[in-house]
Computed example of a mutant assay.
Amino acid sequence: MSTASPHSQGSQSVAAGPKSHPRLEIRNIHRYFDGRAVVDDVSLQIQAGQVTCLLGPSGCGKSTTLRMIAGVEMQDSGEIYVDGKLICDTVFRVPPERREIGLMFQDFALFPHLSVADNVAFGLKGSKDEKRVRVEELLQKVSLTRFIDEYPHHLSGGEQQRVALARALAPRPRIMLMDEPFSGLDNRLRDGIRDETLTLLKEEDTAVLLVTHEPEEAMRMADEIALMRGGKIIQQGAPYNVYTRPSDKASVAFFSDINVLKSQVNGALAETPFGQFLAPGIADRTDVDIVFRP
């Protein structure tokens, strides 16, 4: 870390502006099931307009973390803040409906007996005319205005997903939680709908936490990736950095196939059939794995 030294000439001081809080912050969250830590000391910060992907294999604690942020499950310890205000610890708890948090899941969960317009307007407050204006605005953004009076079963899977997005955004949530929302779509549709969704969320300046087990999806969508394994966040950073500077062998293997050469260090060098590899700072006679991608 570099630090700036004070300027040697003059004594003018500049008052610092107000510190902006992260849109979402979770601090040292734990959750136990049958004495086992499913979420183990997880901390995250997400700014407004930022997309963070919680990436990891099935069963690593991603969805449990999402449910605690949403308020449908309580943490055993730790705190959750929105715009610097505490919304939940182990004593105080803002109910889910008052957290200004939107939810999107793999199952679009549209109401089959309601029209597209009524689905989108479901969580809105205000007069009938005010609701209609907001509904029309969002359906125009997702290119579904022509279906405003149709019912969900008349729509394709991709169209239903866009209705679910419009419904989740209608109340202008400060945070959007997304749990594998694109996994039910076929590959042909998925990329286009992911990009449309990302554009719309950024336009609304929403902080997004996207849960996925697909590295490609995280690399495509995220401003930051939090790689999770065994209930812990193993590594966190920009997608390029997480990919090119993995924290361990398992992290490399999660993003792609790997080749592994076993060797032993002598004189800061590891001998292999492909020649010598530098191994600075590793003691002689230490067994090492040399890992590279195809």
Rank of each mutant, 00 (worst) to 15 (best):
M1L: 09
T3G: 11
P6G: 11
H7M: 09
S11V: 01
Q12P: 00
Q12H: 12
A15G: 00
A15T: 13
A15I: 10
P18S: 13
S20Q: 15
R23V: 12
E25S: 15
H30T: 08
Y32H: 13
Y32L: 15
F33K: 02
G35Y: 02
G35S: 04
V39T: 09
D40L: 08
D41T: 10
D41S: 14
A48W: 01
T52Q: 12
T52F: 06
L54N: 00
L55V: 09
L55H: 04
G56N: 07
G56C: 06
P57M: 04
T64H: 03
L66W: 02
R67Y: 12
A70G: 14
G71R: 02
V72Q: 01
M74P: 00
E79L: 00
I80K: 01
I80P: 00
Y81H: 12
L86M: 13
I87T: 04
D89N: 15
F92A: 13
V94I: 15
V94Q: 06
P95K: 06
P95N: 09
P96T: 12
P96G: 11
R98Y: 05
R99E: 09
R99P: 06
I101W: 02
F108L: 03
F108Q: 07
A109N: 11
A109R: 13
F111E: 00
H113V: 09
V116I: 14
V116E: 01
A117K: 09
N119L: 10
A121Y: 02
F122K: 02
F122T: 03
G123Y: 04
K125E: 14
K125G: 11
S127Q: 04
D129A: 15
E130I: 03
V133M: 01
R134N: 03
Q140C: 03
L144E: 01
T145H: 01
T145G: 03
F147L: 08
D149C: 01
E150M: 10
E150N: 10
P152S: 10
G158H: 03
R162M: 15
A164T: 07
L165I: 09
R167V: 11
R167N: 05
A170W: 03
A170E: 07
A170D: 09
P173H: 10
M176A: 15
M178E: 05
D179E: 10
D179N: 06
P181L: 11
R188S: 13
R190V: 13
R190C: 12
I193G: 04
I193C: 06
R194E: 15
D195C: 02
T197L: 02
L198R: 15
L198N: 07
T199L: 12
K202M: 07
K202V: 07
K202Y: 04
V211S: 08
T212W: 05
T212G: 06
A222M: 04
D223S: 09
G231L: 05
Q235G: 08
Q235A: 10
Q236F: 04
Y240K: 13
V242L: 09
Y243V: 10
T244V: 10
S247K: 11
A250N: 06
A253S: 14
F255K: 01
F255P: 01
F255V: 06
S256Y: 00
D257I: 00
N259I: 13
L261K: 00
S263N: 03
Q264R: 14
E271H: 14
P273C: 09
F274M: 13
G275Y: 05
P280T: 11
D284Y: 08
I290A: 08
I290T: 08
V291S: 02
V291R: 00
V291L: 05
